[in-house]
Computed example of a mutant assay.
Amino acid sequence: MAYELAQVNIGRMRGRLDSPVMRDFMDGLAVVNAAAEAADGFVWRLVDGEGDGATGFRFWGDEWLIVNMSVWTGPEALRAYVYGTVHRPYLRRRREWFEHLQEAVTCLWWVPAGERPTVQDAEKRLTLLREKGPTPEAFTLKAEFTQPKA
């Protein structure tokens, strides 16, 4: 069986999506998402049907948590995008738009190829990472686990 890498990333917004503090983030969303979709190794991303992103989803029922989810061919492809020329400037500015949280905000896990994770799947995986640290079921780019054996 083949596997793909699912990722979730959450952020606690410093203001409402239509507020001045979030303006540059929202203005850049289409460019960042287009770069992801064009990146080598990109498979899928969560969208809500209300524009270019997934801003309509809530994580753990919290209206201040914004969620990003995607699936990639593997950690190398995800890493290349995250630290690439289009996404990296936004990554550097994240504290302008999102509060610094002590707990993990990013989680990775392997899914069977073709499977698309739900927000509920991501909530469970991020909770697991926060409770147990990196495991084969929930890990990070800094503490990654290889895909399951077929």
Rank of each mutant, 00 (worst) to 15 (best):
A30I: 13
Q7V: 13
I66S: 10
D121T: 15
L29T: 04
S19P: 05
A80K: 04
P20A: 13
D27E: 15
V111L: 10
R93S: 10
R116W: 07
R94Y: 05
P112Y: 07
A36N: 08
H100F: 09
P89V: 04
E103H: 12
Y83A: 10
R58P: 07
G15H: 05
S70L: 02
L108S: 01
R45G: 11
R58S: 09
A122T: 04
P117T: 08
G61A: 00
P89E: 02
A54C: 11
I10N: 06
G15P: 01
T55M: 04
G84Y: 05
G56A: 13
R58I: 02
V111R: 12
W72G: 07
L17T: 02
A30W: 08
L17E: 02
Y3P: 02
V86G: 05
G15I: 01
V71S: 13
G49P: 13
R12G: 06
H87P: 04
E96P: 00
D48W: 09
T73G: 14
Q7Y: 11
R58K: 11
L29A: 09
G49D: 10
Q102M: 05
A54I: 11
F59H: 03
W109H: 11
E103L: 14
R116E: 11
Y90I: 13
R14Q: 05
Y3G: 01
W72V: 09
A6T: 06
Y90P: 05
R23N: 03
E115N: 05
Y83R: 10
V71R: 11
R79S: 13
A6R: 09
D18R: 14
G28S: 15
G53E: 03
V31C: 10
R23F: 07
R14N: 00
A38P: 07
G61D: 07
Q7R: 09
R16E: 12
D62N: 15
L108Y: 06
A39D: 12
E50V: 08
P117Q: 05
E115L: 08
N33L: 09
G49T: 13
W64H: 06
G61S: 08
A113Q: 13
R94I: 03
F98G: 04
A35E: 04
D62I: 10
V111M: 15
A113N: 12
G28R: 06
W110C: 14
R94W: 05
T73R: 15
G11E: 01
N68G: 06
S70G: 12
L78H: 12
V8E: 01
A36W: 05
W64M: 10
G74D: 14
E99F: 01
A54D: 14
A113K: 14
V119N: 03
F98H: 03
V21C: 07
